[in-house]
Each structure stands twice: as C-alpha cells, then as structure tokens.
Computed example of a mutant assay.
Amino acid sequence: MTQSRQIFRGGPIFDGERLLMDHCLIVEAGRIAALGPDNGGMSGTGVDLGGDILSPGFVDLQVNGGDGIMFNDAPNVETLRRMGQAHIGLGATSILPTLITDTAAKTDTAIKAAKAAIAEAVPGIAGLHLEGPHLSTERKGAHSAGLIRPMGPGDLEVLLEAAQMLPVLMLTIAPENVTLDQVQQLSQAGAIISLGHSNAGFDTCMAYAHAGARCVTHLFNAMSQMGNREPGLVGATLANGGLSAGLIADAIHVHPATIRNAWSAKQGPGEIFLVSDSMACAGSTAQSFEIDGRTVLRRDGRLTLEDGTLAGADLDLATALRVMVQEVGIAPEAALRAATLVPAKLAGLDAGYLALGGKADLIRIGPDFTLRPLTQGA
C-alpha cells in the first residue's frame, strides 16, 4: 500500500474468528491501526468494499510449486521467491513450500534453501513442509516408489537440526517407515508431525498421535479408509482430538458429502483446515509439468499422471472456500477460519488473524469467492 493511512469499510471484515458487520479497518504504514464499529467519523483514504469480505491472507501449509515450477525442480531461494509471489497473487500470504519425496541430497538442499529464504524474509515463505520420503509404498499416490525409504539415523539427525533452525518444519510421515521413538524425538524438537501416505491401522495411528503426531496430510487421500471393523487413519483422525487435518476441498479429491460428514464428526480441539496441495501450474497458464521424469497433465480442474493418478491439485484457497460454502454447506465464517487462523495456529504462525499493530496482510474476497484487487473502489 502506498498511502500512509487507509480506511476499509462497506463490507464484512473477517478478523480470524468472526465476520464483523458495520465495522471499519484502519491501516497505517502497512500495519493495522484500528478495527471497530464504523461510525463514519474516520478520516483517511477510503476503500469502499462494496459488500466484499476483507480478510487476513490465507495460510497454506501444503504448496508444492507455483509460477510454472515445482520446488523439487530447483530447491533454491529464487524458486521460493517465485512460489511466494505466485501464491500471494492467489491470496495465500503465508505458505509452507513443500518438497515431495526425493533423495537425501535434495532434502538437504531444500532445508538450506528454506533457511536462506527465511533469513532474507522472502515474502510469503513461512517455513518448510517435507512430504516424504518416509512414506508407505502402498499409499504412495504420485510419489516415486523408488525414492520412498525408512527413516535412518542420518535422516533423523538432519531433521532434528532442521527443526531447530526453521521457524516451521512440517513432516509428512507414515508409521510404516518411521518409528514411534523417531516421532517422539522430532515432535519434542518442534517439528509438526503429520501422518499421511499410510496404510496403517487405527490403533497404530492412535499410538503415533500419542507419541507426538499432531496432524494428518490431505484427509481421505492416500491413506487407510474408515471401515466397519477397521477405522484406519481416517477414523483415527476424526476420533482423536489431538489431530488436526489438512483437506483438499476441490470436490475432486474428496466428495462434498464426505467433507460434510467429516466436518461434523471431527473431534476437537484439533480441526480440519484447507490446503491447496498446489503444483507448478499455480499462478500460471502451464498445462503440464514434470515430476521425477513423469508428465503431469492439467485438464478440467484436475492434475493427473498419464495413468490417471491424481498428482496434487489445480486449486487455490479462494476456490476451496467456494466449494466449502456452496457445495459442502459450511458457514462462510467457519470456512474462512479453515483457510486462515486454524492452519496458522497449528503452525505457530503470527498470521491468519487481524491484530492491532500487526502486519496488514489483507485480501478482498468477492461474493463469488474470487479475489478482487484490495483497493478497488478507492
């Protein structure tokens, strides 16, 4: 924002918890100076929201790529800069760039890149998510089976160090290839352990939650499903209040009726939050890209390998909001929380809510759940 003082009014203001009606927000020098009832007496450059929602920026904890490039392709600061800018353009002002299953050398390079990006305060980059390589080959999805492996002592040492040096380190792991003791050590070091790409049973998943796992990666996808005699990872997620869960709400990865039932069944305090699981095409016109030498095709809102396997999502969180509200039937306030405050709290980020003195990372959302220019109508 170029103006020293701006006043936003004329539409609902979401503060991270509630939609506030008949309020105004004042921004001074890029910081939130005031938020309160609009009595019409405030002076400054005015922005009439015209009924649009003003919200803190989205927080996306699973972002594989953007601006035509995958993080795995070139895990360096320039890639993170491009990804950050692409996702800011899509409304996500805080992201965890996500490295999918790769070699130990690539993982080490990604950790160093994330550390450097944080040191340089690259816009949008909040930490790092390592999705693999310690997953289950039975539930590998689009991950390369040849790169999946058990977590060894050397891996553990690298990850423990990374948990200390990064503000946020999320690790998607499967019980099949990571021990309870390793989970406990990583959790105690500050890593967010997320169970995913696993065929583990209910009792095993509950034991891993007890050992320190706090999250589940893309609920329902690439995991053991809930059956009548074996609840699987899905059942453990819904029953265990200590587990939060990311969800790809594109109405492709998970049916809206399934989302609705899971939303109602989830035991707290853990909550379901929205992720994009976005790939290279996010924020670009790319119609295909490569993962580990395999082509991913972008067609009709889907990203698939040539054999039809889903490979991430062609999704942004504004679209996920629309699906949650219009197709799943979730209240806008609750859907907005799932895209802002809930993931921010899980990751320990100072984001996803409006606080006096806080950075004004704001987005404007139209009634059709598309992003609009923030100062349109100024």
Rank of each mutant, 00 (worst) to 15 (best):
A113P: 03
A92R: 02
A110Q: 08
K112S: 15
V178Y: 01
S194H: 09
A213R: 10
C215E: 05
L128W: 03
G190P: 01
H197E: 08
T137V: 15
S224P: 01
A174P: 08
F220K: 01
N177F: 04
A145T: 01
L96R: 05
H218A: 01
F202T: 02
A104Y: 04
T137G: 12
H143Y: 08
A213G: 09
P97F: 08
I173H: 07
G227N: 12
P175M: 07
I148Y: 02
G84Y: 02
I95F: 04
G141T: 05
V158T: 14
E176H: 09
N221T: 05
A117R: 02
S136C: 12
N221L: 00
V158C: 13
P167T: 11
I193N: 05
T107N: 13
I118W: 05
P175W: 06
A222N: 05
S94A: 15
C215P: 00
L166A: 07
A174S: 15
G89D: 14
Q225D: 13
L166T: 06
G127I: 12
T103H: 10
A92N: 02
Y208K: 05
L159V: 06
T179R: 07
T217R: 02
D155C: 13
T107Q: 15
G154T: 11
D108T: 10
H134V: 13
L96F: 08
D155S: 11
K112C: 08
G190W: 00
T93Y: 10
G132W: 07
A92T: 07
A110V: 06
M83Y: 03
Q164D: 12
L171Y: 06
I95E: 02
M151F: 11
M170V: 09
Q188N: 12
H197S: 05
I100K: 00
E157V: 11
T101G: 10
Q164A: 13
R149T: 09
A113K: 07
E176D: 13
Q182K: 09
T93W: 10
A211Y: 03
Q185L: 14
N221I: 03
R229W: 03
L166W: 05
A207H: 04
G124Q: 10
G201T: 07
L186D: 06
L156T: 04
G190N: 06
G124P: 01
L160G: 06
F220R: 01
I111Y: 01
A207Y: 04
D108G: 12
L166P: 02
A117S: 09
R139V: 05
G212N: 08
E138V: 00
L166Y: 09
A126N: 03
T204N: 00
L219C: 03
Y208N: 05
E161S: 11
E138N: 13
F220Y: 10
A86C: 09
G132S: 13
A207P: 01
A121S: 14
A191I: 04
A92W: 00
S144G: 05
G132P: 06
S224T: 10
P167G: 13
V216L: 07
A119W: 09
G127K: 03
L186I: 02
P150S: 15
